[in-house]
Structure formats: C-alpha cells, structure tokens
C-alpha cells in the first residue's frame, strides 16, 4: 500500500501527511512533485494542506493547473482513492473532482482550533471512513481562512440525497449548532465525497491528530481506514 502526497509550491502539510501515512497507517509514502506526471505507483493520493501558489487569486485555483493534477484526475476517474485535506479540499473543488466551493470564513479571520465532526454516513461509505461508524463524533483541528462550504441549493439537495455529505461540524455532544460550525459552512458541511465515493475532501486536519502524543488520534482512523 503506497500513499502519494502531492507537493505543490506552497504546500505545507505535505510532510505531516507523509508522516501520518507512514506512522499512523504504517504504509509506504512518497512525495509527488506538482510539475511531474508520474504517480509513482501510488495506491492512494493525498492533496495536503497549505497555501498552494500562495492562495493568490483564490485558494486552490492555480494548483488545479499543475501537470500532476491531470494524472490525479485520471486516477480518480479510474476509481482510485483521493483525499484532499484543507487546501487539498479547496483544490479538489477547484478542479471539479468535488462539487461546491470553499469561501472565506464567516468571521473573516484565519481560524486554528479544535472542532467536532459527526460522521454522517455508514462506515465504509468511502475508502477513508471504513473505521468511522455513522453518528460517531470525532475531534479534529482546523486551520484555515477559506473553509465556508458553499453550493447552490439544488446541488446541496443532491449531496444530501445521495449521501455525499461525510462530515458535519457539531458540538461535543454531536449536535449541529451555530457555534459548533466555525466557518459558517452551509448545512454545517465539513467534508464531502463525490458520486463514485472514491474522492473525499474535508477542511479539518486528520493529519494533525493521528497520535496520542499530540493529545488526539481521531485522525488516524482516516489513514488507517484506506489501508486494507
């Protein structure tokens, strides 16, 4: 099992994802340079967090044009598992692999803190959530400026109808509240999947909470889930 972690100029969670994949999931990991077109035989692709291209213009807007993304899109279309975390999620929406968009946080400030997520679908709905049963509440850190999920009403209806909303922001008790939704995302959406359910994007960072030493290993579940 091999994780390929894409490195865009400005990615800054590439090492963290590499570490989580190799330590929390015990898998092999490699870096994939954005100018290359070789996925190096990766079985899972991670688009890590950071500020690809400085997030100038719009978060994730430039990264989708990197040569490696053509290969990632082809890989996803073949059913390969792809996860985008934070900036990676923004790149997935910009590149059309996931629907909707991530807009500026409701309070207009960068926000770094722990949030609670509720798993919205049955375990195994996506390759990454095999170990996360529906209704389970996970604690994870967020660190972003643009995490407010937005989609047109008809699109939101479809996401809800097709069971593509994977994680919602909740409070510690698992309830949807305004305070529990840190960035003002519509339907409190924190993570979604595509129709084929092989591509997952989420704003919170499972890579930052994948070991007990850091006080939280809820995030390890996502990395471990994709390893058979």
């Amino acid at each position: 099992m091999k994780f390929g972690v894409v490195v865009f100029p400005g990615s800054n969670c590439d090492h963290d994802c590499y570490y989580a994949a190799s330590h929390a999931a015990g898998a092999e990991a490699c870096f994939l340079w954005h100018k290359d077109r070789d996925l190096k035989g990766s079985d899972v692709i991670i688009l890590p967090g950071g500020f690809s291209y400085g997030d100038y213009l719009r978060s994730g807007a430039m990264a989708r044009f990197s040569p490696i993304m053509e290969e990632v899109i082809a890989f996803a279309n073949r059913g390969g598992p792809v996860i985008g975390i934070c900036n990676g999620f923004q790149i997935l929406t910009e590149s059309g692999l996931l629907p909707g968009a991530l807009m500026r946080n409701k309070h207009l400030k960068f926000l770094c803190r722990d949030v609670f997520l509720r798993a919205e679908q049955d375990a195994g709905r996506t390759p990454f959530t095999r170990n996360v049963e529906k209704g389970r509440v996970l604690r994870m850190p967020i660190a972003h400026n643009d995490g407010c999920y937005f989609a047109e009403p008809h699109l939101l209806d479809r996401l809800e109808g097709e069971g593509q909303v994977i994680f919602r922001y909740v409070n510690a008790a698992g309830e949807i509240t305004e305070i529990g939704n840190p960035n003002g995302s519509l339907h409190a959406i924190a993570g979604i999947t595509n129709e084929k359910r092989n591509v997952v994007g989420l704003m919170p960072h499972p890579d930052r909470c994948a070991e007990e030493l850091l006080g939280n290993h809820d995030g390890a579940l996502l990395f471990q889930g994709v390893v058979p």
Partner: peptide
C-alpha cells in the same frame, strides 16, 4: 490572538 495563528502545523506541538 492565537486562534489566528496556525499552531499545529508540522504536527509537533505537544
């Protein structure tokens, strides 16, 4: 103040 600073990145913050 510090919620505006990324204080987790690099996953070393104990």
């Amino acid at each position: 103040v510090w919620t505006q600073y990324d204080h987790h990145v690099q996953t070393n913050t104990v």
